[in-house]
Design a protein around this nucleic acid. Structure first.
Length: 490
RNA sequence: GGCGCUAUGGUGUAACUGGUUAACACGUCGCCCUCUCAAGGCGAAGAGUUCGGGUUCGAGCCCCGAUAGCGCUACCA
């Protein structure tokens, strides 16, 4: 009978927008909790607001979750297909005297609300339909009036629960209005559908944004009215923008997918998000300092509700950039390649290199990548012969005609060089510089631009080996093209 | 306005059940390395824990008050 109860949790977005970072973090925490405890993670789409919900948004959410590697065990369930459950739940509530029909129209309600605020009163529903007798109700029904169903909140007392993050939380019942469960068109409101579903899906823990704290008492009341056991509520603090207001479009990218498009690697985003409002405590590295780079297995192992913080957190792009850099460097080239290929496609780049060369080259340049788009941008010349020169770099390092002719001459030396290794190529260049009585730096910097089109690159000789002898010779000989392309921009 | 929550450097966090000069990471600045730029190494600045009271031998941790920020205040979710 009493098998060990495995936690059941859910992520329940409403498809009224793409998966935004706040939602993603909630999903992540639920997922981490489920995986840590060996529980079940359910995806439920809260699409009872037909006006604002759309199929495309559902796909956007799913895409975002897949990108982050958040897989679910059950669902997706759609509330729009479970309406019978909600009406049945509402009827139970009516039968037990916990809910009642309300015939006030939206317009009447709105008008009373405005009047109340104008007179300085609380704009709360005045419960005028709560006292309707069975005859009154029948009479209105006969007159063809439609009704919403409201919950009859207790007129006194306190509704409280123990939140896993915030501790004991409570609201005076007088502050709670007789909220609507079922709209007059029979569609449930959020208040009803969440608890009906959470109960039906036997959820044990409700991990969600702290913006839901205020309507938790409305849900607790329904659990009590239905005689159901309360799940554990865990409210997660919100994510704010740099100006400490709730993160929104004003702050720039807010959808998870836009971070993918910016060249962020999923591990980096997940790692960053996990540490926003949660901490595993002190996890030391070999040097005894706190570590923050965690892969998903480690996050799963470390995650616990106790580590969730109570205060809101600011989304810091700089820190995300740092995680991204760390993770790109950590990725083996084989794993990076498919992600890079997406960037190449977008940039119309077709690598003119052999697959094996590509992998070693990725390993060389990933050390200084800040995001995936770099591989199709400033690293372009490493993968294709179809690249252009950076004007500033050409002006800075290839302005001297003499240097350019030396580079062309140097090409000849390389063509004849048998030992095309880092040490070999360096020896050739330094000997050549000495012979011509020029500084090696001049040739090195010039060669870098000729070979990569950029003023910034890894160590020149490592670049040479990565590109291979033929390419090095060809590109050095083509050094005048660099100057020409910059002088007469197409 | 009402109700609720929160409050540690610029940012994210740490600080065992109150007990050394409040720690770590990102960011910032400087130095080193060097063929460029990152990275890396070394170092520095930056909070006396929102403010004011109180309890205590002792408070970032407990209590009270203030302030600020955020959330909710819909027949949205």
């Amino acid at each position: 009978m009493s098998e060990v109860l495995k936690p059941r949790v859910r992520f329940a977005p409403s498809p009224t927008g793409y998966l935004h970072v706040g939602g993603a973090r909630t999903a992540l925490f639920n997922w981490l909790f489920a995986r840590h405890t060996g529980g079940t993670f359910i995806l439920r789409i809260e699409d009872t607001d037909f006006e604002r919900s759309s199929e495309a948004m559902v796909e956007g959410i799913v895409e975002g979750m897949r990108w982050l590697g958040l897989d679910w065990d059950e669902g997706p369930f759609f509330q729009s297909k479970r309406l019978d459950l909600y009406t049945a739940t509402a009827e139970k509530l009516i039968a037990s005297g916990h809910a009642y029909p309300c015939f006030c129209t939206k317009e009447e309600l709105e008008q009373r609300r405005q009047q109340a605020t104008a007179e300085g009163r609380q704009p709360m529903y005045d419960r005028r339909c709560r006292g309707l007798s069975a005859d009154d109700v029948q009479a209105k029904r006969d007159a063809g009036l439609s009704s919403a169903i409201r919950f009859a909140t207790p007129l006194e007392g306190i509704t409280s629960w123990k939140d896993a993050v915030f501790g004991k939380l409570g609201f005076a019942n007088v502050e709670l209005e007789d909220f609507v469960l079922l709209r007059s068109d029979g569609i449930p409101t959020y208040h009803l559908s969440v608890v009906a579903d959470d109960m039906d899906m036997r959820l044990t823990h409700i991990i969600r944004g702290a913006d839901h704290i205020s309507n938790t008492p409305k849900q607790v009341l329904q659990y009590q009215a239905l005689g159901a056991e309360l799940p554990v509520f865990a409210h997660v603090p919100l994510i704010l923008g740099p100006d400490k207001t709730r993160l929104s479009k004003r702050h720039g990218a807010t959808s998870v997918i836009s971070y993918k498009e910016m060249g962020i690697v999923p591990e980096a985003f997940r790692n960053f998000l996990s540490l926003l409002g949660w901490t595993p405590g002190q996890v030391k590295d070999e040097a005894g300092k706190d570590r923050e780079i965690f892969g998903s297995d480690e996050l799963i192992q470390l995650f616990s509700l106790e580590g969730i913080s109570k205060s809101n957190a600011v989304f810091d792009n700089d820190k995300l950039a740092w995680f991204n850099m760390e993770w790109i460097r950590k990725y083996p080239a084989e794993k990076l390649l498919p992600l890079i290929e997406v960037e190449w496609d977008k940039a119309g780049l077709e690598p003119s290199r052999k697959p094996k060369e590509i992998l070693t080259t990725i390993d060389l340049v990933k050390q200084r990548a800040r995001n995936l788009t770099d591989f199709a941008g400033s690293f372009r010349a490493y993968f294709t012969d179809d690249f252009s020169y950076d004007a500033a770099a050409v002006t800075k390092f290839l302005a001297d005609e003499n240097a350019r002719s030396l580079l062309m001459e140097l090409a000849g030396r390389y063509a004849a060089e048998a030992d095309f290794t880092e040490a070999g190529t360096e020896a050739v260049l330094r000997a050549f510089a000495e012979e011509k009585a020029v500084k090696a730096g001049v040739l090195i910097n010039g060669a870098r631009v000729a070979l990569t089109g950029q003023g910034v690159a890894p160590s020149l000789f490592a670049v040479m080996v990565a590109l291979g002898k033929d390419r090095v010779v060809t590109r050095l000989l083509a050094v005048e093209n660099a100057v020409a392309s910059v002088a007469s921009p197409s």
